[in-house]
Design a protein around this nucleic acid. Sequence first.
RNA 1: GGGCGCGUGGUCUAUCGGUAUGACGUCGCCUUCACACGGCGGAGGUAGUCGGUUCAAUUCCGGCCGCGCCCACCA
Length: 811
Amino acid sequence: MELPKNYSFKDAEAKWQKAWEDLGVYRFDAKTKQPVYSCDTPPPTVSGKMHMGHAMAYSQADFIMRFHRMKGEHPFYPFGFDDNGLATERFVEKKCGVKGSRMPRPDFVKLCLRETVEAEKQLKQSWQGIGISCDWNLQYRTIDDWSMKTSQRSLLDLHKKGRLERKEAPLVICPQCQTVIAQVEMKDKELESFLNYIEVEAENGEKLQFATTRPEVLPACVGFSVNPEDQRYKHLIGKKVKIPLIDRWVPVKGDEETLPEYGTGAVYYCSYGGTDCIDWLTKHPDVKPVLVMDVSGRYNERAGKYKGMTSKEARQAVLEDLKAIGALKKQQPIKHAVNVHERCETEVEYVATKQWFIRYLDLKEKFLEAGAKLNWHPAHMKVRYDNWVKGLKWDWCVSRQRFFGVPFPIWYCAKCGEAVFADETELPVDPTASQPKAGQRCGKCRGTEFVGEKDVMDTWATSSLTPQIALKWREDEKFFGRMFPMSLRANGHDIITFWLFNTVVKSLLHEGKLPWKDVMINGYVTDPYGEKMSKSKGNVVEPNVVVERFGADALRYWAASCSLGEDLPYQEKDLVTGQKLVTKLWNAAKFCLTHLDKLEGGKPEKLAPLDAWLMGKLNQAVEAATRGFEAYEFHKPKMAADHFFWKEFCDNYLEMVKDRLYNAQAYPAEDVQSARWTLYTALLTILKLFAPLLPHVTEEIYSLYFAGKEKAESIHVSAWPEPFQEFADEKAVQAGDLAVLVVAAVRQFKSSKSLSLGAEVKRLSIDARERRLLEPLARDIQAAARAKELAFEKPAEPLQVADGLAIGVNV
RNA sequence: GGGCGCGUGGUCUAUCGGUAUGACGUCGCCUUCACACGGCGGAGGUAGUCGGUUCAAUUCCGGCCGCGCCCACCA
């Protein structure tokens, strides 16, 4: 058997990606008798291209899935696309030159659907291009009818469980752009500002001051706080103070959080000046908010003379008015961080609106317990989850004032405003385009006219259901029962607090258990200097380009080079390393196969000493690789396979066994048979160890030779190697290691004399004390050293090989 | 400001109680038979910094410095 001279990764990778798909190598079979190993991977958003971070993270998850497949488990490995939400709207608006807010929603939604289908095709190609072994028949989209149905079903279920509520909540708006903005559209900005000291009068006539950076919200002031321990003010707690300009009396509360040393130690609260104000109002429910700002970003009639102004205008006006009456006592310049709208850099405003919430703050303890039951890889990532849960202050707001998303299955009674929920049989439903089913009446006033909820759900409300979406939740109960919880979630460390946490929440609320057993958390990809890749820095490298130049196997090899959870800089040299390995594998296989035609018979009873050494080393590599993959530490299998293949197998074994293969007639038949069997077994095992990392080149070699001999049609469904316990022979390993040292010493000698490695040695002397150990390997050593004679004797000019062992080389 | 992580030869990285792994680069040598997309050999690090625990620390603990990520409108 002769392999072609060169391996073309371009041809082979394209060929195998297609063949795997055609042959259904990765197809999930619901009737399988094998234990199922399932994986919940992130659905990438369709609004972008695949980037190196994706390439790394999905490769890392794929290593694990490929390992489990070979271990004899049956993978359930679906792939999804996340295509609802703000990012997609932006993407479509930009691409088509439209504005979602300026066109009829059904038209916009239709447009988004069309564009995302197109984008998904390209993304699918990118993911296939790096050799992901998911089953594309299990593909889902977070906006398709099934996902929508699942998401709406989840909402109805939460309603039934009393977890859904509609309540007043602050919404972030940009007063400049006059629009509602999302968390992700905000950024931090260090701002030069003034801390304004304003005087108020207490009930008892006492004058005191508070300090604020936001005097403009004064018309909305409803409360006042001091620290309960603060001797200056504690006697005022429970009394009232009069806010100037609006002459409103507001209550003074005692709050631990009010720091005596900041400003004057007194603070005012407005509805709403910021999240702290909202918190304060939540803590003091007896105080009613006075909402002075509308969604337009302008003050309304409740702001009195400031009506119609924006914050910026009001700040000016309020300060002037305060100055005029002498209430502005001091202005102290300070720097502080504020949230601004990323596009126009305007400070954001908070206005109160009705929103849908999933009530879950009471379950913090449960969430912490759940987090503790998950198997985190790496373990320290759990802390991020814990800190997030402990820091939660809000229920989960799931409504968004957007267009392209999963609609709420909710109408409101046109008469009394009472919410009416869709029936589960109607799902998926768009309440803006349909009515509740016939005969439905308002539960409160018996009204028969309804208005559909216009808001759509937050994208996390749906993507937090990926296990339910993939596993046909409430559609195929038997299947779901068997498959849930899933085995593994692969997740980036940046979205532990969103995607991972939200998925845990939904799963606990719906099913009362965790969605998966294990989680593996991946890191980021940075540029060669450790900086995050971003368009604005111009340091973005595209995986498609990398695959084109170096091959998917090389890309994956790079992705395996860091430990799980670590950030990895993209360096071209690392891709070259992978490419070299692929070439080396090809060449080594080419050599082996020319000698395997004559392989006859099965496993020998006893191995030749050198072969026993190699098998001992092979066993170690197999054990290390298996342990590594089982612990999600894919870089360990990589190192084990690398080391065995490159050092032990190529550099030493092949060089030492060559003579036995080329001059077979000069050796006993059983030694030759031993060599051929070892060669076959070691090569096959090497291919298998590398198969999860380098699926293409290993499959190519396997298919050209081993597929015909072994039972599996693809290396990826062949059995993961087990150590050959019957050949575990410590003495042989020890002897082989020593023989390798002797050969290395001869090489070193030749190198130091500027001799070719092929140069003949007249006589090689090995210290007689090692005769017992090395004599069985004498012929192999002699052949590798190209020595005409080999003798166990005291060397004339000794070269130190190891402690206690010296050799002499006579050329 | 809070949390988490990281800081190892020129560059990236493994190890994580007994002076350190590998890759790339670099220098020298080697081309008849798997591979010059190669082989062999050499040089190069006292593991950010200070201090503590220990017979022994890169590895454990604490301070500091630097970097990254997540969170947070201390009015």
